[in-house]
Simulated assay, not measured.
Amino acid sequence: MLVWGLGAVALIVVAAVIVLFNGLVAARNQVRSAWSDIDVQLTRRHDLVPQLVAAVQGYAGHERATLVLVAELRTRAMAAASLRDKAQLEGELAEQVQRILALQESYPDLKASANFLALQRDLVAIEDHLQYARRFYNGAVRDLNNRIETFPSLLVARAANFGAAEFFRQGEGQEAPR
């Protein structure tokens, strides 16, 4: 009878570990999937930036410094290795793209350009999708990190070497709460 009782307890413990481990794997995969969604939107924005620069160059040639900076930020953002660097560069790129879009107020011909207006519309749509993807990703990171940091799943997470994921913070001065 004691053997059956110990066997049942062992079976329950193994089942609990399996359930916790599978939950951690699912949460980690959700984070990866959510990052993929962000990456798709960033790639779409990166693909539109050269077109935007080319469209504006014809109308606002003396805004060259801004246009060169946008191209440089795009290149650096695409090559960024860490999530923190990528987020900072993407924040700077978004600010500069907004500056370029604001040039239409100074250049009526640019405002009338169908190509520029289409690019502007596409960029606004991408920014909306990016904002949603970023919120979804950060929610997935929060869920994974909660699982990793709460008992009893933290025991399985430590044993299986699960690490906390990093939030995507765009812009400066947005440190994680301690």
Rank of each mutant, 00 (worst) to 15 (best):
I148A: 08
T66H: 12
V97M: 05
V141W: 00
V141M: 01
R45A: 07
Q174K: 15
I100G: 00
D122V: 02
S82I: 03
Q51C: 06
H129D: 15
A65G: 04
F167G: 00
V14A: 14
A94R: 12
R169S: 11
L83H: 11
E105Q: 10
N161I: 02
R28L: 12
N29K: 06
D143A: 15
A54E: 14
M1E: 11
I12H: 08
G173I: 07
L130S: 10
Q170Y: 03
E72K: 15
L155T: 00
Q88C: 02
Y132T: 13
A176G: 09
R76D: 11
A176Y: 08
Q170R: 15
L73W: 00
Q98I: 03
K86L: 08
V56R: 01
E92K: 06
G7D: 10
R64Q: 13
S153D: 02
T43S: 15
R45K: 14
F136S: 09
V9F: 14
G139F: 03
Q131T: 14
F21D: 10
L155R: 05
D122F: 00
F162N: 00
R84Q: 09
V40F: 08
H129T: 12
I38V: 08
D128T: 07
E105I: 01
A118F: 00
W35F: 14
V17K: 01
N138V: 12
A54T: 11
Y107Q: 10
V40G: 08
W35Y: 12
V68E: 14
H62G: 05
A160I: 06
L123I: 08
A164T: 12
Q174N: 11
A94M: 11
G7I: 09
N22W: 07
H46I: 10
E95S: 14
R74G: 04
A87C: 04
P177N: 13
L20R: 00
A125P: 05
A80D: 04
D143Y: 11
Q57P: 01
Y132K: 12
L144H: 07
P108Q: 04
D37A: 14
D143M: 11
L42K: 01
A16Y: 08
V53T: 07
R74S: 06
R28D: 13
R178D: 12
F151D: 03
A10H: 12
D85P: 05
F162W: 08
F136R: 04
V97D: 00
L103G: 01
E166L: 03
E92G: 02
Q131I: 05
H129Y: 14
G61Y: 06
R142S: 13
A79K: 03
Q30N: 11
R64S: 09
L93C: 05
